[in-house]
Simulated scan of single mutants.
Amino acid sequence: MSKPDAGGQMPELSFPRFGGGEITVGGARERHTLLIVYRGKHCGRCKKYLGAFEGLQADWQSAGFDIAVVSADPLEKVEADVAEFGWTFPLGFDLSETQMRALGLYVSDPLSPDETDRRFAEPGVFCVRPDGVIQVVCISNGPAARPDLVELLDGMKFNIAHNRPARGTA
């Protein structure tokens, strides 16, 4: 499985958006992009992580970031989560396995039908510059390892203010 290169181009991908329309990442943009990939409705750790992010999204937006959050869940599961948790960030759904692989994400099979009914992506967080270059890539093979979004935002503000290149490219 190939991983996206820090300092490389984010693949251009589109996902259906909860509430209508599409979310597109990759390619040239006016602002930076924060892409969070979560496991889905079945994941309690995702709910905790996204609940914390809900309170941080305005900070990310004021720092110059467009936001995209996506999972492989179908619309019905996303609707149920939004109704339960009141998420207001741009939320995509139906992330395909091809898209998961294009992002270099780990893909898991459900442990049982009680967990979920489809393959899903393990967590990933990407910070992408307006020129489409991946500044930071954080990919996990399980739900317990994710970047601290407060610390990441602080680091991204520094990177932007000092025009830092992507690191880890050697």
Rank of each mutant, 00 (worst) to 15 (best):
E76A: 12
R17L: 09
N141L: 02
D154W: 07
M100G: 09
P123H: 04
G21L: 05
Q61K: 15
C138M: 13
G8A: 08
A144S: 15
W60Q: 09
R39S: 01
H32N: 06
R17P: 00
R146D: 10
T116R: 06
F18P: 04
A6C: 14
V128Y: 01
P123I: 06
V136D: 05
G155A: 05
E22A: 08
R129D: 12
G55I: 04
A161N: 13
R17F: 00
A68T: 04
K3M: 13
W87Q: 10
G92M: 00
Q61N: 11
D154H: 09
R146E: 10
D66P: 05
T33Y: 04
T33P: 04
D109G: 02
Y49K: 11
H32I: 05
T116D: 01
P143I: 03
T116W: 03
F18W: 12
F53Y: 14
A102P: 07
L13K: 05
S71Q: 02
L149W: 06
H162P: 09
T169K: 15
R45F: 15
A121D: 09
F65T: 04
V125Y: 06
C46S: 13
R118G: 12
P110Q: 08
D109S: 12
T116Q: 00
R45L: 15
K48T: 15
K48H: 14
G19W: 09
L111V: 12
L13G: 05
E115K: 07
A72D: 13
L95S: 06
N141W: 02
L34C: 01
S108P: 01
Q135S: 08
N163E: 13
D73P: 07
V78P: 01
L13E: 03
R31S: 15
D109I: 08
N159R: 12
R164A: 14
G55D: 11
V78N: 05
K3V: 10
V82M: 11
G142T: 03
Q57L: 08
F93G: 03
S14V: 05
P11E: 01
G27C: 04
D81M: 11
V125I: 00
P90S: 11
P90C: 08
G55S: 08
F126I: 06
L152G: 09
L34I: 10
G51E: 14
H32M: 03
F53Q: 10
M10G: 04
